[in-house]
């Protein structure tokens, strides 16, 4: 572990304690994982990459290498699984997270003893008349419900305003109450090209849990994406790089055989949201330094984009 990481943890602990009640409560309730979310327990990898399989087998192998779902979900906890359901597209368009992957994750959460698993995303609204279209077309609504997840409609607008500690541009955000009230937060983005942020991966996917999305666009998209992670990092990031949209993102082509999608059959898992974004950027064929928000988040010590500093476990099925 690098010095950088150590100071980061110390800072994080400080901030966590200064938050007082919330953090204290978390400790008392026996959830120190929340405060240490970024660092893997001794002996377990920082990042896992698996390739050459179907979404379910890829995930099952990946979570096994991460130490099992029990590392993240304890018995009786509530979990929110946050895929990218931002666009009214068929799953083949690769604009949304693979439904089979979402289903497998939900099942795995329940198998680890989760009390309730919620699935939701704040749809990019002016792309479809009804958020329901995105839920339905992407296949995620059906897949998640099959696995007994509670699919929460996005127009159920119950957001609460929070302060971003140390945010450079983003000072406050209105966060969906599910994120604030559930025990475990699993981020399941899809790796894809993005017309205005170059790439959309894990950090970008967090724009789907906040309401003041337009403030990001107005004040500086990259910096705000990075800043938000200072408030809350997911407990686990699972990047879907099974089908990857290589151009015309983030919406892509709404057809069954899109010409801009490449089958990469890969998934990435990590507690470190910056590391997982950096690794996914490489999978896409670009360098992390080229992506504004990854560079900024690394500089703000939100995570580590230097992949060679990390314990990475790769596996090809």
């Amino acid at each position: 572990m690098t010095d950088e990481n150590k100071t980061n943890r110390r800072q994080f602990l400080k901030k966590g304690l200064s938050l007082g009640m919330v953090a204290g409560g978390a400790m008392i309730l026996g959830k120190p994982d929340f405060l240490l979310a970024q660092n893997a327990p001794q002996g377990l990898p920082d990042l896992v990459a698996v390739r050459n399989g179907e979404p379910d087998t890829l995930f099952n192998k990946g979570i096994e290498l991460m130490g099992g779902m029990s590392q993240f979900v304890k018995k009786g906890q509530t979990v929110v699984v946050k895929p990218n359901i931002g666009f009214p597209r068929l799953s083949q368009a690769a604009a949304t997270t693979n439904p089979l992957l979402v289903k497998t994750i939900v099942e795995s959460c329940y198998a680890a003893g989760a009390r309730r698993v919620y699935v939701f995303d704040n749809v990019v609204l002016p792309t479809s008349a009804n958020a329901r279209n995105c839920y339905r077309l992407s296949g995620i609504e059906d897949a998640a419900k099959e696995a007994r997840a509670i699919v929460v409609p996005v127009d159920d607008f119950s957001y609460r305003k929070v302060e971003i500690p140390g945010g450079k541009t983003l000072k406050t955000a209105e966060v969906h109450s599910l994120i604030l009230d559930t025990d475990v937060f699993i981020n399941v983005p899809v790796l894809k090209h993005h017309g205005s942020a170059h790439l959309s991966i894990a950090m970008k996917n967090l724009m789907g849990i906040i309401k003041n999305r337009m403030e990001y666009h107005l004040t500086g998209l990259d910096q705000c994406i990075a800043d938000f992670c200072l408030y809350r990092k997911p407990d686990l990031n699972i990047v879907d790089a099974y089908r990857v949209m290589m151009s015309h993102g983030p919406s892509g082509q709404n057809v069954e055989n899109p010409t801009n999608v490449q089958l990469k059959k890969t998934i990435l898992l990590s507690r470190d949201i910056v590391a997982v974004d950096a690794a996914a950027t490489r999978i896409f064929g670009r360098e992390p330094e080229e992506i504004g928000y990854i560079k900024m988040a690394h500089a703000q010590k939100i995570g580590n984009m230097n992949l060679k500093d990390l314990r990475i476990v790769t596996f090809a099925l």
């Binding site: 993005h194 205005s196 337009m214 998209l221 990259d222 015309h248 919406s251």
Partner: peptide, 17 residues
């Protein structure tokens, strides 16, 4: 600064970057 909100929602690819 990057923004791109318009291109994100354009259904016809009339907005490019």
């Amino acid at each position: 600064n990057n923004c791109g909100a318009c291109g994100e929602v354009c259904p016809t690819h009339a907005i490019s970057f």
